[in-house]
Amino acid sequence: MITKDRILELLDYVKDPEIPVINVLELGVVRGVEVDEESGRAVVTITPTYTGCPAMDVMAADIRKELLEAGVPEVEVKMSLSPAWTTDWITEAGKRKLKEYGIAPPEKTADIRALKGEDPVVECPQCGSKNTMMLSPFGSTACKALWKCNDCLEPFDQFKCL
């Protein structure tokens, strides 16, 4: 029988196509899972990270594919805009994996510095130094900013706080 728990288990395998170390649950884009246990029909509601993020269409297709291949008879992926996604929805496991992958995870939006509009203190994911500087608020994808470590001199991506 297809249960909600089974669907959540399967969603664990659907990765963010642009950051393939974290899955859609860790990224916090899955906002709802409904399963009709009799028919096995599943409705997964996801929310876009950034309005124009091209990965969203891929994620929706990947979710469909994963569930259909696992034997879920009917799958619908709904897109919901409200409430708007925030980086606070990235799970602790997700943040840890981002860091291991070399992307500095976002700070909390309720962080006192973020509230005051100050620049965040970002730890270099390579050497752990806090002596870092932002090179550009726009990085390799919509969700990332480009930073540099002043100690190990490596450039790195930071997941922007949104």
Partner: peptide, 20 residues
């Protein structure tokens, strides 16, 4: 390079809004 990326990032945001 940074500005090239900044403008295309902005373009992408705006394109997403336009789609909506």
């Amino acid at each position: 390079l940074e500005e090239d990326m900044a403008l295309t990032n902005r373009a992408l945001d705006l394109l997403g809004q336009a789609r909506n």
